[in-house]
Design a protein around this nucleic acid. Structure first.
Lengths: 207, 207
DNA sequence: CAGGCTATCGCATAAATATGTGATTTGGAA
DNA sequence: TTCCAAATCACATATTTATGCGATAGCCTG
């Protein structure tokens, strides 16, 4: 029996979803709230297994801020964000802030139930298109190809915070050679400092 | 009718999975290969909808290298990696290289079928624990909290590749103040150069 | 085989950075 | 109220970086 809580400002949606969850013999959903403020203490004191948290709440703090508050309390329950939005920003904000899943509101009830179950079992349930977005975020990649293997090595050492001297020692080459490589890296990446090169390396995931 | 191909070196698994897929009225699976080399031309010339690609192949190039080759050809089909492994390294390598999903081999056939369907519809099917790993990769914590708001601003500017002078101009403070902030950032993050600070900022996702 | 790119090395120097040792003000925590 | 962290500014200096202008040698590709 999985104990589900829901925070959702729209009374119709809240009651409807809660009822559909509660009807299923494997789930209960009696903890219903219309905002984070009223939900906070009850959920801290009497933790559910899984919380469905709406992102766009009418009054008070929004869902992502609420998520942050719950995470700060190191709550034991899993939190699934529940939203009409599927824009990158909120999805990544939610996942970074500690949500374990993200469902869009058009998700059919059967999927919601299996998502709750999955979250409870240590999974990360997401609507189909959200999952694709998340996976695609790993696939940025860019000008890496421009760098020669040796240059990539040098850049990688810079990303480990090494000075020219240390890089030279690590790669068994002279400092002047390191200088030359870095000069070429800068030209190819169109940057003019170690910090910029490192930033670009991370942004473009070339490391 | 979704046309599925499979590359898997173990004949028993290959035939078994292909048969189970093929039996379902909504799927066909007649394109079966034991390695990437023999699969390559046939799949380029006669693309399936979805490819199930084993990672550990007995002979020739491995699944991830194969994935890279297919992606390089800008193939139109979706590729789901299929593996016994669930170690971070291979999962992230696969997703970065362009796989749309990742299934472990213990996945029940019903799940495999729904995963194929999901991939075909633009989703990113993953085994439960894989999904959680992926989501957790967004959640890194650390000493960020240690930085004051102003220090975070300064660090953020450094990550944009700015020099002390530029940061000073951007934040309307003197270069000496920038120096002081950076000094404090270094102390808190335990680093000793801009490059290291930027690297840490990205690694710990404090930007 | 000429023209490119890679990888290696050298010298020189202006600019930027890292770090030490100060100081003042302000607002909140103890 | 006392104390501390945050934010601001200043001066000094040893190191490190960025960049210009070289050079040699190996390897490919047209």
């Amino acid at each position: 029996m999985i104990d589900v809580a829901i925070i959702e400002d729209d009374k119709d949606i809240r009651d409807h979803v809660a009822m559909l969850i509660d009807e299923h013999p494997d789930f209960s959903c009696t903890k219903k709230f219309h905002n984070v403020e009223t939900a906070f203490d009850p959920l801290i004191n009497n933790a559910p297994d899984v919380l469905l948290l709406d992102i766009t709440l009418a009054d008070g703090i929004n869902g992502i801020e609420g998520l942050t508050k719950f995470v700060a309390q190191q709550v034991s329950f899993e939190i699934i964000m529940f939203s009409v939005h599927q824009d990158d920003e909120r999805v990544f904000q939610s996942l970074c802030a500690g949500a374990c899943g993200y469902l869009t509101k058009n998700t059919p009830i059967a999927k919601i139930l299996s998502a709750i179950k999955e979250a409870h079992q240590g999974g990360a349930p997401m609507s189909m298109h959200i999952a694709r977005m998340v996976v695609q975020s790993f696939q940025s990649q860019s000008k890496t190809g421009a760098l020669s293997p040796r240059e990539k090595e040098v850049l990688s050492e810079l990303c480990n915070g090494k000075s020219y001297k240390k890089v030279a020692e690590t790669l068994f080459i002279s400092q002047d050679t390191v200088r030359t490589h870095i000069r070429n890296i800068y030209r190819k990446l169109e940057v003019h400092s170690k910090a910029e090169a490192v930033a670009k390396a991370f942004k473009d995931k070339l490391i």
